[in-house]
């Protein structure tokens, strides 16, 4: 099936099979490796990308569903070499360790801030319920999201 979508701001026409998962199309066809396959069951959040601004598990989302929509991956988060405030906050707060969850965390946080510009710590915890990290203990991630929200205000 032919789909037309915008990926990280760039229009794309792609030929994909109905059973192709968005994660595989992004990673293998478009060589956007930032979204990771981990639990493959929508629990961990490592494959999170934004479709029309909403967080989805790309591992369990048909690529054909992205037809006519706009997809944002971590590769599209920065403005050229200028990091997104969330990326800067993650770097500065020490919210990154192995990095495997990082792209999903960043995009989930971006979706949250689009809905809620003044999140409380509890709001962040609620939104990150489906985002697992095994390295950091989460504290610095939550701090980074709150710091980025503060910066954006």
């Amino acid at each position: 099936m032919t789909i037309r979508l915008v990926v990280n701001g760039r229009p794309r026409d792609l030929e994909v099979a109905p059973h192709a998962l968005l994660l595989d199309v992004l990673r293998d066809t478009l060589d956007l490796k930032g979204a990771k396959r981990s639990c493959d069951t929508q629990v961990c959040g490592a494959c999170t990308v934004l479709v029309d601004g909403l967080a989805v598990s790309a591992c369990t989302y048909l690529a054909v569903e992205a037809d006519g929509r706009s997809v944002l991956t971590v590769e599209g988060l920065a403005d050229g070499e200028s990091l997104h405030p969330l990326q800067r906050a993650f770097v500065e707060a020490g919210a990154v360790q192995c990095g495997f969850c990082t792209s999903g965390m960043l995009l989930t946080a971006k979706a949250m801030l689009a809905e809620n510009r003044t999140p409380t710590r509890d709001d962040v915890l609620h939104y990150l319920r489906g985002s697992l990290c095994r390295c950091t203990g989460y504290r610095k991630i939550v701090d980074a999201v709150l710091a980025a929200a503060e910066t954006a205000r």
Binding site: Q42, V56, S57, T108
Partner: peptide, 9 residues
């Protein structure tokens, strides 16, 4: 329900 990604879809 579940998590934000599941709720979105």
């Amino acid at each position: 329900v579940a998590n934000v990604r599941v709720r979105n879809v």
